[in-house]
């Protein structure tokens, strides 16, 4: 049965390897958490500093997009194998989201 497979015939080696792999992943997740905190602080400081809206708005939107990418790919494991279908679902969701936001803004403003 495909579902019953173990990774190697020796469970002990398998276990050590997996623990190492999980710890490695945890390290990446903590780094991405630190970067997310940093980006959040930069975004708040940029708004508090009172630059022109033409600079601040695109800048904080880019920071938000980067943060969300960290969240999706590291925290939600989209960088792992076997996430082709989630990628398809999320990217189609994002596509429709962008179309919808552009449509609402242009229809109501112009």
């Amino acid at each position: 049965m495909e579902n019953n497979q173990m990774n190697t015939s020796n469970p002990k080696i398998d276990l050590d390897f997996r623990r190492k792999q999980n710890a490695e992943e945890m390290r990446h997740q903590v780094i991405s958490f630190a970067l997310m905190i940093l980006f959040t602080i930069i975004a708040f400081v940029a708004v508090g500093a009172g630059f022109s809206a033409w600079f601040t708005v695109p800048f904080i939107l880019v920071l938000a997009a980067v943060q969300v990418a960290f969240q999706l790919f590291y925290f939600m494991h989209m960088n792992h194998k076997g996430h082709e279908a989630p990628m398809l679902f999320m990217f189609s969701g994002v596509f429709f989201a962008i179309v919808m936001i552009i449509a609402y803004l242009t229809i109501i403003w112009w």
């Binding site: 989630p86 679902f89 969701g93 429709f96 989201a97 919808m100 609402y104 803004l105 229809i107």
Partner: peptide, 25 residues
């Protein structure tokens, strides 16, 4: 796993409609 990610794709669109409404209003 598959079904839940499909749901999250749908939630993205749902929240986008609320964001779009908010930005317009």
């Amino acid at each position: 796993f598959l079904g839940f990610w499909f749901f999250l794709g749908g939630e993205t669109v749902l929240f986008a409609s609320l964001f779009a409404t908010y930005l317009a209003l």
